[in-house]
Simulated scan of single mutants.
Amino acid sequence: MGNQLLVVDKLIPGGNVESYIQAVNTIPMLSAEEERELAQRLHQDNDLEAARRLVMSHLRFVVHIARSYSGYGLAQSDLIQEGNVGLMKAVKRFNPEFGVRLVSFAVHWIKAEIHEFILRNWRIVKIATTKAQRKLFFNLRSAKKRLAWLTNDEVTAVAEDLGVEPRVVREMEGRLASQDTAFDGPMDDDEDQAWQAPAYYLEDRRYDPAQQAEQADWTEDSNTRLLEALEALDERSQDILRQRWLAENKATLHELAAKYSVSAERIRQLEKNAMKKIRKQMDEAA
């Protein structure tokens, strides 16, 4: 029972990361023969104790890999925990007949889980969504040795190494250089700077009661003036506008031309003149 509790403690780094690292470094490493025997027991008999020993003996490697991702501003305990998830997935899939050591097989799974965690949490706006973008993201982070922008030669070299267009490298570099902004602005902003926070220029005013009332009044007034202007037209002009613009099944010029025994061009002229009269009357009533 004590060993089972120890497994749980080791797989979930607590607040004291250094104590966790010291603890996992004391766990004995397995020889090639021991590893193969345990892997066979797990693979053939689903031996959970064998799986526990395989995982425990490789926790130190997860720590080593997680430390290489310390430059992303994320808690090392979180990186280690995600790497441990990858290790457990690797142990579950490891076949001793592969002819390789577990650590070589597990590296891919450990890094994959850490990569996913970084991409989910490093920025609010996701900067890498496709497989190619993810590869470029991590390689470009490693390629940039300084804070300055890459030169044209450096961009070309990175693009050639990763098999992408130079513009893609520039685009990703711009994303890496961007910074997240707090919606309400920093707490220590003074009044002269506070207006620059997104909360001020991204405010949704669609449901402001005052604006809704104003919009309703404007719409009602516009409809009233439109009906008054329409009623001031002669009967034929009213019918043409209603048939052309207000009816559910709008009539064509030729249909109205047949109705009034005139040409389609004449109907178009009558429609145009009627619209001019309505605009003029509505402007005068405004």
Rank of each mutant, 00 (worst) to 15 (best):
M1T: 13
Q4P: 00
L6H: 05
D9S: 13
D9L: 14
K10M: 15
I12C: 10
G15P: 06
S19N: 14
I21A: 11
T26S: 11
E34W: 04
L38W: 02
L42S: 04
H43Q: 08
Q44K: 08
V55D: 10
V55H: 06
R60V: 13
F61R: 04
V62S: 03
S68A: 12
G73A: 10
A75I: 01
L79M: 04
V91S: 06
K92V: 15
R93Q: 15
R93C: 10
F98Q: 10
R101I: 05
H108Q: 03
I110L: 03
K111P: 13
K111E: 15
W122D: 07
R123T: 14
R123V: 04
R123S: 12
R123G: 06
A128G: 08
T130D: 00
K135C: 06
F138K: 09
R141T: 11
R141Q: 10
L147D: 12
L147S: 12
V168L: 07
R170L: 13
E171H: 09
M172Q: 07
M172H: 05
M172D: 08
G174D: 09
Q179I: 12
Q179E: 12
D184H: 03
D184W: 03
G185N: 02
A194T: 03
Y200H: 14
Y201H: 14
L202Q: 06
D204A: 04
Y207C: 07
A210C: 00
A213L: 06
L227C: 03
A229K: 02
R242I: 15
R244A: 12
W245N: 10
E248I: 06
K250Y: 01
L253P: 01
E255K: 05
Y260F: 09
R268M: 07
M275Q: 11
K276S: 11
K276D: 12
A285M: 13
